[in-house]
């Protein structure tokens, strides 16, 4: 058999073997893919950004036409919502003033200020197996590794790859996402694990923790990666199979999101915390 024929026939087998090797090396964390991936992200993000906007507005226009019939009912509902929220707004202002005066009385050190970067989601190519999105903002927009990412309603994920002009966000529903959380009103700490579906599972709960449906779950700030107190989801099911949490945001229809750049104490992430000096707290 001529050499050329052998080469042509063997090429697909060699490429399949190469693909398998790449996957195994990547899984063993021995392959420096990160830099290559961020380079591809940086190159493609502007093109995706240009294409994403018209496609997203086209899709939302189609669903807008469908919802025109419900416009009147929605208007009535929104007016009622507005009246209700106005009362909450006034209550929030009162509580804020009260909170500030208590903080001053107790000499509490406020949490470090947070800054936000708002961006449009330009890609969610993961499909059925990987839950992640691409943002056209990166290191030059001060996006940092492990930053929390929020939509209007709550936490949607954290930054896992940062390029110069683009970054990748691992969504809280991804199989590889584990978020330290606190169940509101109980002070119980747990890990919120993604399951690649619409719901997440609360893990490492103490026995007989007595979870109730409807309770909200917020970030605990443990580990120093995410700021504490960010709303994540609501408990929707408590059974023998586990406690299930639904994200507050609709992760299938993300358009604009905010990257939260909290000025965290880097010592928290490494666990290298020096003993407090005598002057502290005096």
């Amino acid at each position: 058999m001529p050499l050329k024929t052998v080469t042509v026939r063997a090429t697909p087998a060699v490429l399949v073997f190469l693909s398998l090797s790449l996957m195994i090396l990547y899984r063993a964390h021995t392959l420096p893919v990160q830099r290559l991936r961020t380079a591809v992200m940086d190159v493609t993000a502007p093109a995706l950004s240009a294409v994403a906007a018209p496609i997203q507005s086209f899709v939302s226009n189609i669903s807008g036409v469908a919802s025109l019939q419900n416009l009147k009912a929605e208007n009535v509902r929104l007016k009622a919502d507005n009246a209700r929220l106005q009362k909450w707004y006034e209550a929030a202002l009162e509580l804020k003033a009260e909170n500030e005066s208590f903080r001053q009385l107790l000499n509490v050190k406020a949490d470090p200020a947070m800054s936000f970067v708002t961006a449009r989601v330009v890609s969610d190519a993961g499909g059925a197996f990987v839950k992640s999105v691409l943002l056209p903002v990166g290191a030059r927009d001060h996006v940092q590794m492990d930053s929390a990412v929020m939509s209007g309603q709550g936490l949607i994920g954290r930054v896992v790859e940062v390029g110069a002009a683009a970054s990748r966000v691992l969504l809280i529903t991804d199989l590889n996402s584990d978020i330290p959380v606190i169940v509101q009103g109980t002070r119980i700490r747990a890990i919120l694990a993604g399951e690649n579906g619409d719901l997440m599972r609360l893990e490492r709960l103490p026995p007989d923790s007595g979870m109730t449906v409807g309770t909200q779950v917020v970030t605990s700030g443990d580990g120093g990666q995410l700021p504490a107190g960010l709303p994540v989801g609501t408990i929707v099911s408590v059974s023998a199979k586990g406690v299930w949490v639904k994200p507050l945001s609709n992760l299938n229809r993300l358009v604009y999101v905010q990257v939260v750049n909290a000025a965290l104490n880097p010592a928290l992430a490494t666990g290298d915390i020096a003993p407090a000096s005598q002057s502290d707290g005096q």
């Binding site: 399949v16 693909s19 996957m23 893919v33 992200m41 890609s123 993961g126 990748r168």
Partner: peptide, 21 residues
Amino acid sequence: LDLLSGYPPGMNALVLVAAQA
């Protein structure tokens, strides 16, 4: 496609090469 979509590198490459063969 793998690098863009957050897949392990080689996943789409393997499937497409195998499908082509």
